[in-house]
Amino acid sequence: MKKPYIFTLSHLAVDFACFNILFALLLPALPDGNGGTLFLLYNLLAFGLQAPIGAFIDSRPRLRAIGPCLGGVVTALGLAAAYLGRAFVPGPVFPVLGMTVAALGNAVFHVCVGSIVLTESGGALSPAGLFNCAGALGVGFGTYFGTGIPAVSVPAALVVIVLASLALWTLRRDELREVKPATDAEPLPGWALALLCAAMVLHGLGGSWMPEPPLNGALTLLPPIMICLGRLSGGVLGDAAGRRSAVLMMAVSAPLVILSGATPWPALVGTLLFWTIVPLFQLTALSALPDSPGFAFGLTKLCLLAGTFLSSLAAPSEYDRRWIVGAAALVAAALTLLATGKNKKKETIK
């Protein structure tokens, strides 16, 4: 019973630690002009490697069992290297080293826990929603406090990530040693997985270009809080009212995003609705790859990375972004509907 909450809180701790490295330690140590490149490197390592790591752990259940703790420890080592190293060696060397190590720990943590959560979800969306929601808070708080009060935020992140790693260590002997097939139903066909991947890439692109509401100070934490609530409610509502409700909620985000402007509320509500689809993405990927929960989880992150990367190839105006994000939400919703077909709650995954 305690396991889902340990996973959720440790997810927050891992992302909080990583974003403290990036915003409190790495950015201030960089000469002008290198940040974008290093941030892209972080994204490539932390998100691009989840698919191959997931494929690797799928046939190694013992490794998957210790993976969450291992990921936490490696992330903690990255943070400690960046924090302590910078005290002795000025410049970006140790922050870059720490960022690289932490990105690898982040990838291992995410894909191992994601694999466990998907395998044990029994086809329900809410466990994936509960796990995923904390990441947005870790990113938001890590950025906000790491930028605002780094002298407090970084040591706090170090303590929190060490405590999270200890908590994860206590879970290693749980029923994690055996990867059980997640379904005995017919897996989704390849074309459905291809449509789903296209939807996830579009979602990643839309998430990157989501309009930023005019907020200042602590109110800038509202968007990550909305993302958190969106992921959580997408899982809960999808279980209660059927999977298509999550698709519908993402489609409804389109007009809100398009109409958002000087008033922040349409954009904030649109942000919440836009992210409700994430648990469904992950469970549908598992439906297509039922014997590979780690790879299925990593594949969703690879698509997210591809969408985010595509967004870096152009710089449309704020007005154009709204229309692009709205269109991306609608097309991604249609593709997801096509990919899931007539699948309803717990129909393809038992």
Binding site: L22, L30, L40, F47, W275, T308, S312, L313
Partner: peptide, 14 residues
């Protein structure tokens, strides 16, 4: 939001 918005970096990657 999982990923770093690339436009927060000092130099846009593009």
């Amino acid at each position: 939001m999982n990923l770093i918005p690339l436009d927060v970096a000092p130099e846009p990657v593009y």
